[in-house]
């Protein structure tokens, strides 16, 4: 019994080491935060849209699942995912809507003119309030919203071909069927 007592520090340390090992698992980013908005109704918005008279409004988008991508011309990682977004829009006919987060409309327009426009429509969120309502903490962020306006998934940082294949497209397909 008394000996067990002296074993205690070792046991505590081993448990601790176990936790450390789990924390070191690959593909685990401590900086990435889960969204608090998952399975909650998307915050409503009605934004002036870029180069278009029709505003980008949540209510108008409901009915079919869709994807919202927060981007900005000043955001470097956004450039990384841009070709992928182009491909998704052209090949997979992704229902992709853009929200230009804290960006000057002219700059966003120039970006899309230079690199191509993957979005069906782009809303202008110059003061970042819609982003704040969504819980955006960095761009790019991508949200999958179902037909009833519930947020089903958030991707933080640039999308990759892998996450698109394995997560985004299957989810959309599933939402489209149900």
């Amino acid at each position: 019994m008394r000996r067990l007592f002296y074993l205690l520090p070792l046991v505590v340390f081993m448990v601790l080491a176990g936790y450390f090992l789990v924390s070191l698992r690959p593909a685990h980013d401590v900086h990435e935060l889960p969204s608090a908005m998952i399975e909650k109704p998307a915050p409503t918005f009605d934004l002036a849209s870029l180069g278009d008279d029709k505003p980008l409004a949540l209510d108008a988008l409901k009915g079919h699942p869709f994807v919202i991508n927060f981007f900005a011309s000043w955001c470097v990682p956004c450039r990384v995912e841009h070709p992928l977004l182009m491909r998704l829009a052209q090949q997979d006919h992704l229902p992709l809507y853009g929200i230009a987060y804290k960006d000057k409309p002219a700059d966003s327009a120039r970006l899309l003119a230079t690199f191509g426009d993957p979005y069906r429509q782009v809303g202008i969120d110059q003061d970042g309030r819609v982003g704040l309502n969504f819980g955006v903490y960095g761009v790019p962020e991508t949200y999958v919203i179902d037909g009833t306006g519930i947020i089903r998934k958030r991707f933080v940082g640039p999308l990759t071909a892998e996450t698109v294949e394995k997560e985004l497209l299957p989810l959309l397909k599933q939402l489209g069927q149900s």
Partner: peptide
């Protein structure tokens, strides 16, 4: 704020 960003 918490409802948007979580308890984090």
């Amino acid at each position: 704020i918490v409802s948007r960003y979580g308890a984090f």
